[in-house]
């Protein structure tokens, strides 16, 4: 608790909370990072589930490089947003669930990547084995859940 209050009163915490543009810039960055990460993952998942089979999965190797950039943007902007209101976020159940879902979502994408590296899981027509499809479904659920939990933080905590 002592640390959280120190963080809130630190220069960074104060800047996020009180500067004219700080909050707007950080929040917008967080939204763009989200669009890149979740957008890339959703497209990957529906491709695994059978959509647009003609398109090579190798395209996602490159798209995921961009998704990692998005993840970096959101790690930084997320930490900054947290510094603005550390006490509120730490004790928000929606925030805790969001972090858990991001972790689960990240693991599911990693597992899915391993599954499609194995040629046995891939058919010549671009289709993918059932086990990988199950992982893709889980990944969809985790990431859409993370967005839902993130949105709910604003409704389950008092403003500021």
């Amino acid at each position: 608790m002592h640390f959280l209050l120190w963080l809130k009163d630190s220069a960074i915490g104060t800047w996020v909370r009180e500067s004219d543009y700080g909050y707007a810039i950080v929040l917008s960055s967080h939204a763009i990072g989200m669009a890149i990460i979740v957008g890339a993952v959703l497209m990957f998942d529906i491709r695994i589930l059978g959509f647009a089979r003609q398109m090579s999965l190798k395209w996602f190797d490159q798209i995921y490089t961009l998704a990692w950039v998005g993840f970096g943007v959101n790690a930084v902007s997320g930490v900054l947003l947290f510094c603005g209101n550390p006490v509120k976020f730490t004790f928000s159940t929606a925030f805790q669930i969001k972090l858990a879902l991001i972790l689960a979502g990240g693991i599911s994408v990693w597992v899915l990547g391993k599954q499609i590296e194995n040629p046995e899981n891939l058919a010549p027509d671009g289709a993918v084995r059932r086990a990988a499809k199950l992982t893709a479904m889980l990944s969809l659920l985790f990431w859409l859940g993370a967005i839902t939990a993130g949105r709910l933080i604003a409704y389950t905590t008092s403003p500021i």
Partner: peptide, 14 residues
């Protein structure tokens, strides 16, 4: 609205 945003932007990335 956020899910729609990610769907739209993800498809545009591809």
């Amino acid at each position: 609205h956020f899910i729609g945003l990610c769907t739209l932007f993800g498809a545009l990335i591809v």
